[in-house]
Design a binder for these strands. Structure first.
Lengths: 197, 197
DNA sequence: TTGATTACATACCAACCAGTATGTATAATT
DNA sequence: AATTATACATACTGGTTGGTATGTAATCAA
């Protein structure tokens, strides 16, 4: 009964929304309870404290979202550069207006919590490393099958791509502009082209 | 007496430090007062409320730092690509360990405050636009003197460069690693090379 | 000299917060 | 049938927060 419980899941998803909007520290438990129509007793039945709730949001929702959107599709692509360009394109189109306004949940939490809570930092770092290693793995596969230049350092490239994606969403969030997001994505695909042999 | 007052300046700088570490919402006025060795009466004498203090930090400290570190040096460079590569290099070296751990003050505030306070958002946006326009101006100057490819869209490129810089510092902050920062900067300079004619 | 303004200092307050204590209906176990 | 554990629900608390009310010493203007 620890996992895949509907009440627990409702709490998790409401917590994700509240944290995505307000940040973790400013996220109010009472507000999460109102959102999910659940009581404080239920919350503290499933999570020992606010921090544990935050950790669960990172490990169960955010990590899963990265896997599902960025990594699994890329595993099936034969040309990683084509695959990445496609994903960037899809990302720009599939993000809702609210998603543009709220930015990347991983990066938001990252900037807020990394310096003040090492438990958060390590869990967020795990997700970032999963992401970077997934991209690096795809780039190396491309180097093997000849779709990616053999001279590049796959992990460094992957890191830069993830960083740029995060940065693009930052600027778009501040500018409240899908155009900024697309202009950034456009230029990132130009960089990707330079990785071809 | 409204400006360049030593007490006011002390408050501003302590506020900057506290906000840089904790974020704006979590920044405690009492903690700022302890840092600056000033009393609440003094703080509320110079700033009507916490928000106004935050605005002043953005407009007087953060904006000025962007101008001084990124824009003024670039004005004097004859080749903007060389200039940018030099600045990225200097940035990587001149950042203190603490600076790496705390990340970019502008981007931190941006992600925290943009969705929940439009006054903050607009002031931060002004700084980002100053930054992007400064880079774009330099790139256009390069297009004129033949050091930059004429086919690129200067503003879009500038936006991408700023976004990537922000993203690099995000990942480095989370990883607590200067290596990540340098690897990202390295790849950003590779992108910059592709802007040459 | 005197009245007003500036530049703080101290004490206090209402609101909100995460967390707890206690109670209870239901379901599982023995 | 009796006992125990689960899954909540409600009421409360101590600590912190941004902000205010009030007071005062020093400076400036008339």
């Amino acid at each position: 009964m620890i996992k895949s419980n509907p009440t627990r899941q409702k709490i998790l998803e409401s917590a994700f929304q509240e944290i995505h909007l307000q940040g973790f520290q400013a996220a109010s438990l009472n507000s999460i309870l109102t959102r999910s129509d659940v009581t404080k007793g239920a919350l503290y039945h499933y999570f020992p404290d606010k921090q544990a709730l935050g950790f669960a949001v990172v490990e169960e929702l955010i990590k899963e979202a990265v896997l599902q959107f960025w990594l699994r599709p890329l595993e099936e692509a034969s040309d990683p550069i084509d695959g990445l360009k496609g994903l960037i394109n899809v990302a720009g189109k599939s993000l809702s207006d609210e998603d543009v306004l709220l930015g990347c949940p991983l990066n938001n939490l990252c900037l807020e919590m990394s310096p003040i809570d090492d438990g958060f930092r390590q869990r967020l770092k795990q997700v970032y490393e999963l992401w970077r290693e997934g991209f690096a793995w795809a780039l190396r596969a491309g180097q093997t099958n000849g779709t990616v230049k053999s001279t590049i350092n796959a992990m460094d490239c992957a890191t830069f791509i993830v960083a740029s994606l995060a940065g693009c969403r930052s600027l778009a969030k501040n500018a409240q502009s899908r155009d900024v997001l697309n202009a950034c994505g456009q230029n990132l695909t130009l960089y990707l082209d330079t990785l071809q042999p």
